[in-house]
Simulated scan of single mutants.
Amino acid sequence: MPKYVIEREIEGAGKLSSYDLKGISQKSCNVLDELGSKVQWVHSYVTDNKIYCVYIAPDVLSVQKHADMGGFPANSISEVRSIIDPTTSE
């Protein structure tokens, strides 16, 4: 199944408390439960003003539906074409 990176512009994301992040995570998981097993949240990176999320889903529409149902911004949804790391150079 395809993997996607979602860019969510959230002003002050890096200053969110652990309580706030827990609430966001719980909301996301609740929406995922409603959607069934077709969409999987892998993990997210929180930066100063954005959250970058990695999802596995059958298509971009499923990822957008998760964002819509959760009330999360999805400013950009990009399909991952390849994954590289330092071992790629070997």
Score class of each variant (00 low, 15 high):
35 L>C: 04
62 S>P: 03
49 N>S: 14
73 P>C: 09
6 I>T: 03
50 K>N: 09
89 S>C: 12
67 A>Y: 02
21 L>P: 02
25 S>Q: 12
47 T>P: 10
19 Y>D: 06
44 S>P: 02
38 K>W: 04
63 V>D: 02
65 K>S: 05
24 I>V: 08
13 A>K: 01
59 D>F: 12
63 V>R: 03
33 D>E: 14
6 I>C: 12
64 Q>M: 11
66 H>C: 05
47 T>I: 11
15 K>T: 03
36 G>M: 12
37 S>L: 07
33 D>F: 10
20 D>H: 07
36 G>F: 13
69 M>P: 00
12 G>D: 10
70 G>W: 00
6 I>Y: 08
57 A>K: 03
6 I>D: 02
30 N>L: 08
68 D>Y: 01
28 S>W: 00
82 S>L: 15
64 Q>Y: 05
73 P>I: 00
4 Y>H: 07
80 V>C: 15
74 A>L: 01
80 V>S: 14
80 V>M: 15
68 D>I: 00
67 A>W: 01
66 H>D: 00
7 E>Y: 05
58 P>I: 08
83 I>E: 15
4 Y>T: 00
59 D>L: 08
36 G>C: 09
90 E>I: 06
38 K>A: 07
45 Y>M: 09
25 S>T: 05
21 L>W: 06
69 M>V: 00
39 V>G: 04
12 G>V: 09
29 C>A: 13
54 V>A: 13
75 N>D: 13
35 L>K: 07
45 Y>D: 04
63 V>N: 01
8 R>G: 01
27 K>S: 05
41 W>E: 04
35 L>M: 14
80 V>P: 14
8 R>W: 05
29 C>W: 11
39 V>M: 10
27 K>Y: 00
49 N>A: 04
15 K>V: 03
70 G>N: 07
7 E>L: 14
6 I>S: 07
42 V>G: 11
3 K>D: 03
73 P>T: 01
23 G>W: 04
48 D>L: 15
18 S>G: 03
1 M>Q: 10
39 V>C: 04
55 Y>E: 01
72 F>L: 11
71 G>T: 01
68 D>G: 02
82 S>A: 14
52 Y>E: 01
33 D>T: 06
10 I>C: 09
32 L>Q: 06
73 P>W: 04
64 Q>P: 00
63 V>F: 07
43 H>K: 13
53 C>E: 00
83 I>R: 15
5 V>W: 11
46 V>N: 10
22 K>Y: 08
22 K>Q: 09
46 V>L: 11
44 S>L: 02
28 S>T: 05
26 Q>R: 11
69 M>T: 00
56 I>Y: 11
23 G>F: 04
14 G>N: 09
66 H>A: 06
65 K>V: 02
52 Y>F: 15
26 Q>V: 08
11 E>R: 13
65 K>D: 01
3 K>Y: 12
4 Y>R: 09
58 P>Y: 07
43 H>M: 13
61 L>G: 02
41 W>M: 08
12 G>Q: 10
10 I>K: 09
68 D>F: 06
76 S>C: 06
17 S>C: 04
28 S>K: 08
67 A>S: 10
29 C>I: 05
76 S>L: 14
26 Q>C: 05
49 N>W: 13
56 I>N: 10
13 A>I: 01
